[in-house]
């Protein structure tokens, strides 16, 4: 779970990289110092890019009628005094994962 600030109008959409075996691929040592992540990031096959989710609707807490239950986990964030909850049960699955949104005037991406 993460909430990231988006720069200007950068829209993040779900990207699926087939990488189950990637982590185990040997990579040639590089003379240039690189972070672990850069060295290892060698996706072999890229899957279809999904449509970015923008403008997903939100409602007030008191308008909730069963969409989210008390014991469910949410990703909660406050930006400039504005609070919003993203139920994890709405974020999972290959067609979701990233919600592009605006909160307190700040473009954000809630990711799972």
């Amino acid at each position: 779970m993460r909430v990231l600030a988006r720069q200007s109008s950068l829209q993040l959409c779900l990207f699926v990289a087939s990488a189950l075996s990637l982590f185990f691929l040997a990579t040639a040592p590089s003379a240039v110092a690189q972070s672990q992540s850069e060295r290892d990031f060698q996706p072999k096959r890229l899957l279809a890019v999904q449509r970015a989710i923008k403008d997903a609707p939100s409602i007030k807490a008191k308008q909730v009628r069963g969409q989210v239950a008390n014991g469910e986990l949410v990703l909660g964030v406050v930006v400039k005094g504005e609070a919003r909850a993203y139920p994890i049960n709405m974020l999972t699955g290959p067609r979701r994962e990233i919600i592009n949104d605006t909160l307190g005037g700040q473009p954000i991406a809630a990711t799972w």
Binding site: M1, R2, V3, L4, A5, R6, Q7, A56, P57, S58, I59, K60, A61, V64, Q67, V68, A69, N70, G71, E72, L73, V74, L75, G76, V77, V78, V79, E82, A83, R84, A85, Y86, P87, I88, N89, M90, L91, T92, G93, R95, R96, I99, I108, A109, A110
Partner: peptide, 30 residues
């Protein structure tokens, strides 16, 4: 990208601490 402070918490506790909160309203996937 700048990461913002966020938390993973039950809906019950979140709305108690933040009564004015809004909540995403799309279909469940899980």
């Amino acid at each position: 990208l700048e990461a913002l402070p966020a938390e993973m918490v039950t809906w019950e506790a979140w709305k108690r601490e933040h009564p004015q909160t809004t909540v995403l309203n799309i279909s469940r996937t899980s």
